[in-house]
């Protein structure tokens, strides 16, 4: 990992106020730590949001609300989720491992980067998503876990929005 400064957020408003291109949020860390270790992301600052009150899991009979910090294990175990949204509970319990689900947040789950092996490789292989303009090693390489629909010559991984702190 490259050096970074660490800070702990104490309330949502001031956390949002300090977010910028060089700051990475950390929730469970189960995605960010891998990206930091492989230097896929090299933020100047890591902002720990784990002490914010964003772990809500609430069902009012119509709408299910999941906080960004609700953990995969807690969502899967929640009685209302199990009773009214069994597919969500089942999908969560089929994911990762019990240990990872105790850490992984819903917000972090939605913000995962592509699982393309080249993107995550420890050596710098051509990857337009990681280094724009460097090419795409997966186009004629190992295409396991790549997209069937929505790919382009520039990137054959699942198309998805870029997010902050690269």
């Amino acid at each position: 990992m490259e050096p970074f400064a660490y800070a702990r957020a104490t309330d949502v408003a001031s956390a949002v106020a300090v977010l910028d291109e060089r700051t990475a949020v950390v929730a469970g860390g189960t995605e960010l730590l891998n990206l930091l270790k492989e230097r896929v992301v090299t933020p100047d600052r890591v902002l720990d949001i784990n002490r914010l009150a964003l772990g809500e899991i609430a069902f009012d009979g119509t709408t299910l609300r999941l906080g960004a910090l609700a953990r995969m294990s807690d969502v899967a175990a929640h009685p209302a989720v199990r009773a009214s949204f069994p597919a969500i509970a089942e999908a969560l319990e089929k994911s990762a491992s019990p240990q990872l689900r105790n850490m992984a947040s819903m917000g972090g789950n939605l913000l995962q980067r592509t699982r393309c092996a080249y993107f995550r490789a420890d050596t710098a292989l051509p990857c337009n998503k990681r280094t724009p303009g460097s090419g795409c090693a997966a186009r004629n390489g190992n295409t396991r876990q790549q997209a069937i629909f929505g790919w382009s010559e520039a990137c054959v991984a699942t198309r998805r929005a870029q997010h902050r702190a690269r």
């Binding site: 400064a5 800070a7 702990r8 309330d11 300090v18 100047d44 600052r45």
Partner: peptide, 16 residues
């Protein structure tokens, strides 16, 4: 840990 809010949360100039 330094808390968020003023002052700034850390060096952005590459200092360790």
């Amino acid at each position: 840990a330094r808390s968020i809010g003023a002052p700034a949360i850390g060096p952005a100039d590459g200092a360790r």
